[in-house]
Amino acid sequence: MPPVLEARDIAKSFGPTPALRGLSLTIDAGEVVAITGPSGSGKSTLLHCLAGIIRPDAGEVRFGGTRLDRLDEEARTRLRRDNFGVVLQFGHLVPELTAAENIALPLMLAGAEREAAHTAAAEWLDRVGAGECARLRPGDLSGGQIQRVAVARALAGEPSVIFADEPTGALDTIAGEQVLAQLLGAVRSRRATLVLVTHDNQVAAYADREVIVRDGRLVDPVEPAGPAGTGGPPWGMDATLPEVTR
C-alpha cells in the first residue's frame, strides 16, 4: 500500500529560528500516528507542513501523488477542504458564526444542502458531547467546548486524513476520552488516517505508533523490546505491604 503522507527532509525556519531541521516521515493509510516531543520542538510546525497549511523552506511533502509543497495557497486550501479534517491547537472557529454554523458552513461549501448540513452539524456536536453549544458563538464557549466543536467540524466532512494538534488539551480525562473515541471511531470505521500532536502520554497511547520530535528532528525509533507487550494484568501492584501475620 502506498503511503498516504510523506515528508522528505523538510526544513522550516521562522526568521533565524529553525523549527524543523531536515525531517523525514512516512504515514500509511489507516494509521494513527502520535507526534510527541518537548514543547517548542517543532511538532505543530511539522503538522502544519503535512496538512499543507504552511510550506516548508526545503524538502518535499506528498499527499498520495500530490506534491503539497509545490501547490500555491489556493490549491492547498481546496485540497485540504476535499481531503483533510484539521483541528488546530486553539480551535480556530469563525467567531461570527455559531458552533453549528461553524460545522455546517464547510459542508455547504463542499456542496451539501443547507438542511442536511445543519442536521449533520447537530449530530456531530452530540457525538463529541457539545450538543448544548449548537447556538452559541465561540466567544461564549469554554476552551474545552471550542475543542469539541473543532473536532466535530473536522470529522463532519468525513475526511480521509485527520490532523489534530492537542485536541484534548483543554478537556478533562473523561471528556478527552469521548473526543478521542470519536476521532478513533472515524479512523477505524472509514480507514481514515489520524495524525495527532500531543504532549499527553495517555493520549499518545491511543496511537498505533509514536514519532518523537526533538530539536526539529525525529528521534530514531528504538528496537521493540522490554518488559511491556507481555499482555500481563493491568493492575501491576506488587506485594509491597507487610503481611498481617508472619
Binding site: A181, L184, A205, Y206, E210, P224, G226, P227, A228
Partner: peptide
C-alpha cells in the same frame, strides 16, 4: 538518553495495551 528512549517505548507499549483494555 537512549536508555530513556527505550524505556519510554516499553512504557508506551504497555500503555497501548492498557488503552486497548479501556476502549
Amino acid at each position: 538518553q537512549r536508555y530513556l528512549d527505550r524505556q519510554r517505548a516499553a512504557h508506551l507499549a504497555r500503555m497501548r495495551e492498557l488503552t486497548a483494555v479501556k476502549t
